[in-house]
Design a protein around this nucleic acid. Structure first.
Lengths: 207, 207
DNA sequence: GTGACTGTACCAACCAGACGGTACACCACT
DNA sequence: AGTGGTGTACCGTCTGGTTGGTACAGTCAC
């Protein structure tokens, strides 16, 4: 068992949701997946809602931390680009990024699972997400670049999350790469002083 | 009771999900909302999955119809712009567009409710959505404009759906309008012949 | 036209299983 | 002996789905 039983349980819950859907997130199933009895599980999370709250809050906290890590303040659009990078790097269960995080001891890799669980069980548990988005939107709009461009980058990132959440086919690799490059370029050059800005595309710009 | 009992039931289910969340989508609750007994409900939809399948398929069909209506083929990017318009016009339960559709006899207004129900209950019911997205992505990539731009428009649209699905604050009206105008402009001017395209912004372009 | 029969629409009552949650015993370690 | 952590057993409720009907409109042979 890992140093932190809570993380073990959250990771088990995330795996379960990723594999079998939010419907199958039952206390019994989570306990089994985490190799724990239901009693043991309920010692760490007082209720099912509490467990989902843990998933959601961990997700938000991890995303915030990722943005923080990627952000190099100073240049306009830095926060927006960090937001983009954090989205792209988000560890979707079943991918390399997932396994990497899982193995590196930086907490469980959750992907969209917490969102799915909250939507399925109790939408009011999404309140931390709503609150985080208010904060993120504020940061995007005051990032030194055109707020419309920053918001489009955000929406496109949300689109990537949406794709993960409902299990759509991921974009083909080259297209995905080109899209990210384009968004990144847009968040670099969209000066807020202009009313009408252009979003230059530079598909092969290295990171 | 409306001419079509199935539509009545689907609308009731959508209202229920919008009001109380996908968790509350029980056969008893849907029956009560539709003023019907559970037996009567199960006469029209053989199972709960069948009901959710109805929600999902109706959603996809309505969206397709909306795109079809908005699309004026001929100019490059026409399909992409129609996709954008269909997203923006999608009747979210509880809004004007919702009530309008509901009253106009064009079938129930579903918003994201079918997606939420499928995510919550049985992700495999999302297969029609996945299939639709494959089709939509093909259309976007062969719309006579730069595929990267078209895909970004799609992702931003998905972001708007995501916002609806998890109940985030909608964008402030002016920003929302500016974002849509910008996306629309991008889907108008991004010629596919160029490797690197620009996305001119024209925030006050009338529709 | 009338009685036998059929198909559609709906309903009330019930059931078996799943699920969240509780109670409490147990055990290792300090 | 006490505390953190875990396991077992159980309970009440919820819920999807089944069963066995009712009501009634249509239709078709006679």
């Amino acid at each position: 068992m890992s140093a932190n039983a809570r993380d073990t349980i959250l990771a088990a819950a995330a795996r379960l949701i990723a594999r079998e859907g939010a419907r199958r997130l039952t206390l019994d199933a989570v306990a089994a997946e985490a190799r724990l009895s239901k009693g043991g599980l309920l010692y760490h999370f007082a209720s099912k809602d509490d467990l989902i709250r843990g998933l959601v809050e961990t997700l938000v906290a991890q995303f915030d931390a990722e943005v923080e890590t990627n952000s190099v303040p100073g240049t306009p659009g830095a926060w927006t680009r960090a937001y983009l990078d954090a989205t792209v790097k988000a560890p979707v269960p079943g991918t390399d990024a997932h396994a990497t995080r899982e193995a590196s001891g930086h907490g469980p890799a959750l992907g969209s699972t917490g969102i799915a669980a909250a939507v399925a069980n109790n939408p009011s548990l999404l309140e931390p997400v709503r609150e985080a988005y208010r904060r993120w939107q504020r940061n995007l709009e005051s990032d030194g670049i055109d707020p419309v461009t920053a918001t489009i980058v955000r929406l496109a990132c949300d689109g990537l999350w949406y794709t993960d959440l409902i299990g759509l086919d991921p974009l083909p690799g080259p297209l995905n790469h080109a899209v990210i490059s384009r968004l990144r370029a847009a968040a670099t050059c969209a000066h807020r002083t202009e009313t009408a800005t252009t979003l230059p595309a530079d598909e092969n710009q290295p990171r």
